[in-house]
Simulated assay, not measured.
Amino acid sequence: MKKRGVEEKRLQLLCDVSGAFRPGILTALVGVSGAGKTTLMDVLAGRKTGGHIEGNINISGYPKKQETFARVSGYCEQNDIHSPHVTVYESLTYSAWLRLSPEIDQETRKVTLLHVLLYSLF
């Protein structure tokens, strides 16, 4: 970047980004290569380990709390490994068991999972 005349030591990858997501609706984030899609998702998911992150992240108008956000969202990277030997239901069940609090009983977990599955179909 310095060869192109950029003198700053930090490169700003995202600026004034906003968006809206409807509950229970699968949303695709699309754009050209290098547009910042992965950077945005890594920052939102709390997976960004390098660089400098500043600014506010609000969910429904409230400051994002990572522990709450992780329970109500899912982020599957394109290079995640998914077993071809399990069904979608089995994969979601496994994810739900990891995400939901241990205090939640098995019947409530099943109802929650079915709720997510039904919403994703419509």
Results as ranks from 00 to 15, higher is better:
G19T: 02
A45W: 00
T68K: 14
Q66E: 13
Y94H: 14
F122W: 15
E77P: 07
I57A: 04
Q12G: 03
Y94A: 10
I59Y: 14
P23I: 04
A45N: 01
E103S: 08
R109W: 01
E90W: 11
T108G: 08
S120D: 02
M1V: 05
V86A: 04
S60T: 09
G55M: 06
D42M: 08
Q106K: 15
A45Q: 01
Q106E: 14
L29I: 10
E77H: 15
R4W: 03
V17R: 08
T112F: 12
V43N: 00
L14M: 05
P102H: 06
T39L: 10
L118F: 15
G55F: 09
H85C: 09
H85M: 11
Q78F: 05
G61F: 02
T93H: 10
T68C: 03
L40V: 01
F122T: 15
K2H: 14
T93N: 11
K64Q: 11
N58R: 14
W97T: 10
I53T: 08
K110R: 15
N56V: 00
I81T: 13
I81S: 14
C15I: 01
S120F: 01
E8L: 10
Q106F: 13
S33M: 08
G36D: 01
S83C: 07
F69S: 06
G5N: 00
D80I: 03
S95I: 07
I57L: 12
E107D: 06
C76Y: 12
T39K: 04
V72S: 12
L13F: 07
P63A: 05
N58Q: 13
N56C: 03
L113A: 08
I57S: 09
L114A: 07
S95P: 06
L40E: 08
T68E: 14
Y62E: 14
L113M: 07
T49N: 13
G50L: 13
Q12Y: 06
T39G: 04
I104F: 11
K110C: 07
G36E: 00
N58P: 03
G31C: 03
T93S: 12
N79S: 11
Y62H: 14
L92R: 05
P63K: 05
R4L: 09
G51M: 00
D105G: 08
C15G: 09
G46F: 09
W97P: 00
H52G: 05
W97V: 10
S60Q: 13
L92Q: 04
L44S: 02
E77F: 14
F21W: 07
L92K: 08
I25V: 11
V86T: 07
E107M: 05
K9V: 08
E67S: 12
T112Y: 14
G31Y: 02
T38I: 05
G50I: 09
V43M: 05
E54T: 11
A45C: 01
V6S: 08
G34D: 02
H115D: 15
I81L: 12
V6C: 12
Y75A: 00
T27E: 06
G5F: 00
E90N: 10
E54P: 03
G50R: 10
S120Y: 05
K64A: 06
R71E: 11
G46P: 04
S120H: 03
E77R: 15
R4V: 03
L29C: 04
A20D: 07
K110E: 11
